[in-house]
């Protein structure tokens, strides 16, 4: 008795409020798609468009902001720092990710499951929590320094966070799963007999790896490089928290221009340029991701 009337009420409510009920020619699915597209436009594309538009409009209309940003020494320093930290991060992440992925492929099924869990677990922990954990571990009074001093390996605590080292460490830790997974996916697809065949044809283990395995795993490596580069460029929280105020990267610089110095001309121009750069990377390299997930050719 209650259930049918509740359903009827629900249907009436839904129909009246949200227009999900089938309209002639439109299915519920169509409605959901249109709805999410509208949400995307309203919450994402319009504000983004506003940012781009502002970069051409304030303080005076024209492309003056772009001209002056290329001559702005502070912007040069910040962009330089961002590129330097990002390349370090991407390089280290790829190296560590490649080794881990290789170990994953070689591992037995049980070990592999445990290792994959170890890779995926950090993904569910907020980056904020992870940053605080790094601070607790690595600050001068932290666990690592205390142990090293107690063991007599150090006289003075060393600074492992609140500097560029801390930033790179925190960022590499964050990026690792995004590198390991595509590389692993690609490696798992490599016919494991190929390096053995190379060996049987007289290649040294090193040659078999460099001439056979590495080229075959390259698409995964490229996809990982693409993903981590894009994420590094816009990183905000980790540099702000682990950098001790001295590692100012583009995202934090933009936020300061928006909230503190009110230089929205600089902020929007830099945002637009960042958008362009990442957009160009996506446009140029997005096929790598498809490649990495595509079925192997037989």
């Amino acid at each position: 008795m209650i259930l049918p009337s509740a359903i009827a009420l629900g249907r009436e409510f839904a129909g009246a409020r949200f227009q999900i009920a089938p309209v002639r020619g439109l299915s519920v699915q169509d409605g959901l798609v249109i709805g999410s597209v509208l949400v995307l436009i309203a919450c994402y594309l319009l504000p983004l468009g506003a940012v781009v538009a502002l970069s051409f409009l304030v303080p005076v209309p024209g492309i003056g902001n772009y001209w002056s940003i290329f001559q702005n020494a502070t912007v040069h320093a910040v962009v330089g720092k961002t590129l330097w930290i990002s390349s370090l991060t991407v390089g280290l992440t790829l190296l560590l990710g490649y080794i881990t992925a290789y170990a994953l492929v070689q591992a037995g099924p049980v070990a592999r499951k445990l290792m994959l869990a170890g890779v995926l677990l950090p993904l569910w922990i907020s980056v904020l929590v992870r940053n605080y954990a790094w601070i607790a571990l690595l600050s001068p009074g932290g666990i690592v320094n205390s142990i090293l001093i107690r063991w007599g390996w150090l006289d003075q605590p060393v600074s492992l966070v609140r500097n560029s080292f801390g930033v790179v460490l925190g960022m590499v830790h964050y990026m690792l799963p995004y590198a390991i997974l595509p590389i692993y996916a690609q490696m798992a697809r490599i016919d494991s007999t190929l390096p053995h065949l190379a060996r049987s044809l007289g290649a040294s283990p090193r040659q078999a790896f460099i001439r056979v395995f590495l080229p075959l795993s390259r698409p995964g490596l490229a996809a990982a490089a693409f993903l981590t580069s894009i994420m590094s460029l816009g990183f905000y929280l980790t540099p702000a928290m682990l950098g001790g105020g001295k590692t100012v990267m583009v995202a934090e610089f933009i936020s300061i221009q928006v909230t503190e110095t009110l230089r929205w001309d600089i902020a929007t121009t830099l945002s637009t340029l960042l958008l362009l750069v990442t957009g160009a990377l996506v446009w140029r390299f997005s096929h790598l991701l498809e490649l990495a997930t595509a079925k192997p050719k037989t």
């Binding site: 502070t74 001295k246 590692t247 100012v248 610089f253 110095t261």
Partner: peptide, 15 residues
């Protein structure tokens, strides 16, 4: 002077 000086200060920190 705040806007200009704040950015120069950032410049020093970020260098």
């Amino acid at each position: 002077n705040y806007f200009e000086v704040q950015n120069r200060y950032l410049d020093v920190l970020a260098a």
